Simulated scan of single mutants.
Amino acid sequence: MATDVWGVLDEKRRLRWLFSPFEHVGPLEFGMTHEQAEAAVDGVLQTALREGSSGNEVRADFWLAQRPDARFSGPAVTVYYGRSIGLAGIAVNALRGPQVALNGMCLVGQVPSRLEDQFTDYLETHNKDLQYSQCADPCSAQLGLVLRAQRAGDIVLSRPVLVAEAWAHRCWDTTEGCIPRQEWKTFEW
């Protein structure tokens, strides 16, 4: 039997994390060192890759420590560190990442158009601005949140990128913002 490389983790089997803008995403707090982030997710996620990238950023991928089966190989969470501020960006994999909630709104693995409607309503209710990246991703600099899309076979699902306040001012800008270019190129895994 062939391995389903597009396996999407069932919602009931996902980790549950809360997002507090500019503070934390689950156990990961903005500003942490990589060693602190590893300790915060110890036993749940494990580092699979850590690499430098161009500029002042460093990237690391965290994989599920207990993989449900072979279909779920690949990173659950990708983190980006700014050398001067520590943990500055967290991208949650649409297929196998934790379910991240903002005031009850689930941000991971959702149908992008439906999530965009919820997000727009949320921003209007909370008197926050909606912006779009050059890739047409809905964003809010006031929350440090970009709702990207990621391919899962013939469908796409939501892949949120959550950033520290120091990266938020241009989080929608794919060319001059702080989110590394490699993140903007991530569409499938």
Rank of each mutant, 00 (worst) to 15 (best):
R170V: 10
Y80H: 00
M32Q: 11
A164N: 11
P160F: 08
C135V: 05
H126S: 08
A168K: 09
A168V: 11
P21D: 12
P112R: 05
A60T: 11
T174L: 06
T47V: 15
W189G: 12
G26W: 05
W17S: 08
P21T: 11
D4P: 02
L102Y: 07
L45F: 10
G52W: 09
Y80V: 14
G89Y: 05
E176K: 03
F72V: 10
H34P: 15
V79N: 00
E116T: 14
P68S: 05
A152F: 07
R13H: 15
Q110A: 04
A141I: 03
F187E: 00
Y132F: 15
D121M: 05
A60I: 14
P27K: 04
W17E: 08
T47N: 04
P138I: 03
T175A: 04
G52Y: 09
A60F: 06
C106A: 14
P98A: 10
R71A: 14
W63M: 13
A40Y: 10
G26N: 09
I85K: 08
S53T: 13
R50W: 09
H126V: 12
H126Y: 14
N56S: 13
H24Y: 14
A65K: 15
D10R: 07
Q118Y: 13
G144F: 15
Q110G: 00
T33C: 05
R50K: 07
A60S: 09
G86I: 12
G7F: 02
Q66Y: 09
P112M: 05
V146I: 03
E35G: 07
Q134S: 02
V25D: 05
M1Q: 12
L18A: 15
V5F: 13
Q182E: 14
H24R: 15
R59V: 14
Q182P: 06
N103V: 04
G43E: 06
G55L: 01
L143W: 06
V25M: 05
P21C: 15
A152Y: 06
H126M: 10
D129S: 08
V58S: 09
T33Y: 03
Q99R: 07
L145R: 08
L45R: 02
W17F: 15
C139V: 04
W189N: 06
V146R: 11
R14T: 10
L28H: 04
R59E: 04
L64F: 12
P180V: 13
A40P: 01
G52R: 11
L9H: 11
F187R: 00
L130H: 02
G82E: 08
L18S: 14
K185N: 14
G82H: 12
A2Q: 12
Q118D: 09
L157S: 03
E38D: 10
W167K: 09
D42H: 12
Y80T: 11
L28Y: 07
S133T: 12
S133W: 02
L45Y: 12
R50E: 07
T33P: 00
L28T: 07
C178V: 06
V111E: 08
V41W: 08
L95A: 01
W63C: 10
C178M: 11
